[in-house]
Nucleic acid binder design. Sequence first.
DNA 1: GCCGAAAGTGTAGTCGTTGCACTTATTGAG
DNA 2: CTCAATAAGTGCAACGACTACACTTTCGGC
Lengths: 197, 197
Amino acid sequence: MTEPTGRRERKKAQTRQSLADAALELFLERGYDQVGVKDVADRADVSVTTLFKHFSGKEALVFDEDDDQEAALVAAVRERTPGQSIPQALREHLLLGQSRFAVHAADPRFADFTRMVQETPALRDYAHRMWTRHEAALARAIAEAVGAPEDDVSCAALARFALESRSLIQRHPEPRRAADEAFALLEHGWAASHPAG
Amino acid sequence: MTEPTGRRERKKAQTRQSLADAALELFLERGYDQVGVKDVADRADVSVTTLFKHFSGKEALVFDEDDDQEAALVAAVRERTPGQSIPQALREHLLLGQSRFAVHAADPRFADFTRMVQETPALRDYAHRMWTRHEAALARAIAEAVGAPEDDVSCAALARFALESRSLIQRHPEPRRAADEAFALLEHGWAASHPAG
DNA sequence: GCCGAAAGTGTAGTCGTTGCACTTATTGAG
DNA sequence: CTCAATAAGTGCAACGACTACACTTTCGGC
C-alpha cells in the first residue's frame, strides 16, 4: 500500500512527524499560545526554517492534511442509500465523523486535544476553515444530485448550513440529538416545528 | 443630542477619525496588504502606539464599532409584525441592511470598498466575525420568542443559519432573490422544494 | 492654581513568517 | 563509479503586527 519510497522521502516524512509530535506534546503541556514555533523546532531538533518548509503555519502543526474529506463529503451525497434525503445523508456523514471521534474519546490525550482546540481561538478558527473549505464542492454535488443549476442558491445554502452544523453539534453534550434537531430544521423547516412564529 | 463633550474627547474623536480616514484612503489606493500600520499612522500624523490605543488591530481600522447591531437583530425578532414568522422577520432585517447598502452603491468609493473587503481574506474574515458575533444573543432572543429553553438546539441552529445567510446573499448578484431562497429553505425545509432527495 | 487622569510618544522587544545564500545528502543518468 | 542535478536542511537577517514600558503633555474637576 504505502510502498517503496526512497531514503529521502522517508527522512522527510520522519522530520515532519517529529515536528507534529513535538508540537502536540508542547501544546498540550503548556497551551498553544505559550509555545513558540522556535520551541517546537528545537524539540524536533530542526531549524525554524525547516519547520515552515513542512507546515504552512503554526496552526497547521496539529491538523492532518486530509485531502479526502472533500471526496467523502461529495460521496455521502452522491452515493446515499436510495430514498434517503440529502440532509439525512449529510447528518449521517457528520455523525459518522463524530463517532470516529467518540472512539478515541476514551484516550484522555485525545480529549485534552479537542478541548485545547475548542478553547484556543486560533485553532478553533483554523479547524472551522479547514472544514468549510469544501462548501463549494458540496454545493456542486448537491446541485448535481437534484438536477439544479450549478450555482443554485438553495443548494449553496444547504451546503453552507450543513457544514456549519458541525460546530453546532460538536459543542453540544449530546451530539446525536443536536444533529437530529439541526437537520430536522433543514429538512422540514422552521414552520414545521414552530407554527406560532 | 450628542454634544457636551469637552475639548479632550473632541481631540480624541478627531484622532480616531484621522486614522480611519488615512487607513481607508491608503487601503483603497494600494490595497490592504500593501499598506503597513506605520504608513497609516504616518499619514494621520500619529504614532503607531497611538493607533493601537484607538483600534484593536489593523482590520478594525475600516469597520465601525456597531454595538447596536446586536440590539437591532434582537429587536427584529422580538418586535416583528404580528403573524410574521421569525425567519421572515430575519430575512427582512437582512434585506434592510442590504438596501442601506444599495443606497451607497452608487458611490464608486463605496463599491471599491466592499470589493476590497471581499477580496482581502483578512478583511472578509473579520467582517464575518463581527457579524456572527451576535449568534448567542440572537439564539436567546429566538428561544425567548417561542418559549423554548434558552439552549434549545433548533433556535441556536436558526440563529447560526440566518446569520450565515448574509454572506450567501451578499455574494449573489441578485440579493433579494437569494434571500428569498435561503430563507424559504429555513422556513419550509429542503423536503418542501426537493421531494426527490 | 493644582493634581490626577487620560492622550500621546519613542524605544525596544516578541512572535510568526519569509527571503537568501549556503551546506549536505540522495538520486538518477551516463 | 562518478558527477551533476535536485531537494532537505541550516543560519541569519529582515519584515510586519502588536505589546510593554517609561515618559511627556494636556485637559478637566476641585
